[in-house]
Every structure is written in C-alpha cells, then in structure tokens.
C-alpha cells in the first residue's frame, strides 16, 4: 500500500522557482491498480519520482506499507518495483544479464531469482530475445526487459511511469495482462498515463492531476457520475478544464 500526504515539490532554476507539484494526496491499495492521469506537463513524472523516493519532497510525505520513504530508503525500496521514465538498458549485456544484475543488486543469489526470472520471461513473452544483447532492441523489447528488471525481486508495490508509451497493440495487450496478473496476486500497482483507454481497461482507482494538483479521484464510474458525462473522455476534459495533452 502506498499513501501520499499533501506532497509538494519545487525546483530552483535560473529563471526562478518552478512549482512542479503543489498538492497531491492519494492512497493506492493492495490488489488494486491506481492510475495517475493527467495531461503532459501536469506533474506526473515528478509525482512518481517523489513517490519512489528519487526526489525529496519540499513538503508532505510518502509511506510505503506504513514506512516513510525518507526514513528508511533501503527497506522501502525492497518493497518497491519501479519502471522509471528513463528506461535505458546496458547495450552490451543480454536482456537476461540486465535482469539478473538488478536481482543481484537487490541481494538475491541465482537460486533465489532464477525461478522468478523464468516466470517473467514466460509472462512477458520474452523468450525469443532474452539471450540477445540489448543493442538494437525494439521499444517493446526494451520496455519488457525494463519491467522485468524492476520486478525481479518480487516487490509488493509496483510503480510504472507511462508503461505503454510507444508500444504497439500486441505488446500493450500483453503488458496489460501482466499487470492484471500482478493485481490478482494482491499487489499494489500505481501507473501514470495520459492515455484514456489505459485507464478504462486497467484502473480500479483514478487520480486526475493537472497543474501539480489533484483535480478529482475515484473509480472511473464515480468520475463519470461526478461530471455527469456519458464517456470517460468527456469526464476528464471537464475535470482538467482543457483537452490539451490528452490522448484517446
């Protein structure tokens, strides 16, 4: 479970202070997929980075399974699997070696991670490229490898920043199946997206963000009722006050 409490983050730049996140509070429960929806530049990636502790909040707190992330980063990270916005791989290592490296960085020996690695290769359909070097991987192969490396230590909580960005239909469907599987196992999943269909297909709980603040939250059905709109799309447009930066 991930709890975020009135989170705020500002960056000092040459042109003055930029307030990337003003006020975000939300709770992501176990056995649910929570979607962070917002247009480009709404503060999603910053919120995500605060959530997995890469950035230190100017204000507010993040608790993972009851522990404050700033108090015990190492222990919290054991319980977190993160697919960040940047998902570069080591081009000279094979996909399998990339994943195994992160398993070892999590303190696992080959005996501990190999069954999980085989399971992930099956679930993410990676068997035809897993022993190839990552140089020249397609976007889909890269994302699959990056996801596998972020969950190889079987974390209870999984955080993904725009996971289906740039993927084709088949890969996207496979990825959705994988996330629904994780949900069925009772894990807590948070994903950020600006794609409407993603929310409709996956999310139990949606948090709408615009200009660094939460505009609304609830189930997709609840949001439709709230705005008295027929479609999710119209509901979102009304909630964020503009059509800019959203994708259908």
């Amino acid at each position: 479970m991930i709890e975020i409490n009135s989170l705020a983050k500002s960056f000092a730049t040459k042109k003055g202070i930029i307030q990337a996140v003003t006020d975000v509070s939300m709770t992501a429960h176990d056995g649910q997929i929570t979607g962070l929806l917002g247009p480009n530049g709404a503060g999603k990636t910053t919120t995500m980075r605060l959530l997995y502790g890469l950035l230190r909040p100017s204000h507010g707190s993040v608790r993972v399974d009851g522990m404050d992330i700033q108090d015990d980063k190492v222990e919290v990270r054991r319980r977190l699997g993160v697919l960040p916005d940047t998902r570069g791989l080591y081009p000279r290592l094979t996909a399998r070696e990339n994943i195994a490296y992160f398993a070892e960085l999590n303190g696992l020996g080959p005996k501990d991670y190999e069954p999980e690695l085989e399971r992930l290769i099956q679930n993410l359909e990676m068997s035809d490229f897993v022993d190839r070097r990552c140089e020249g991987f397609s976007q889909g192969q890269r994302t699959k490898t990056a996801i596998a490396r972020s969950v190889i230590h079987r974390p209870q909580n999984i955080v993904l920043d725009e996971p289906t960005n740039g993927l084709d239909v088949m890969t996207t469907r496979g990825l959705r199946r994988f996330l629904l599987n994780c949900k069925a196992e009772g894990r807590c999943i948070v994903l950020s997206t600006h794609i409407m269909q993603e929310v409709a297909a996956l999310c139990d709980h949606v948090v709408v963000i615009a200009k660094g603040s939460v505009m609304a939250k609830g189930s997709p059905e609840h949001l439709k009722q709230l705005t008295q709109q027929e479609s999710l799309e119209d509901a979102f447009v009304q909630l964020i006050g503009s059509e800019e930066g959203l994708m259908l």
């Binding site: 502790g53 190492v74 054991r78 993160v82 916005d85 940047t86 080591y90 303190g107 972020s150």
Partner: peptide
C-alpha cells in the same frame, strides 16, 4: 546519458 542510471540508483542500497 544512456538513461539507466535512474533505475540503478533506485536499488535498495546506499
């Protein structure tokens, strides 16, 4: 520059 540093710095270790 190859964008793998963020993931590396997120592992449970100082």
């Amino acid at each position: 520059e190859r964008e793998s540093l963020e993931s590396l710095l997120l592992v449970p270790a100082p």
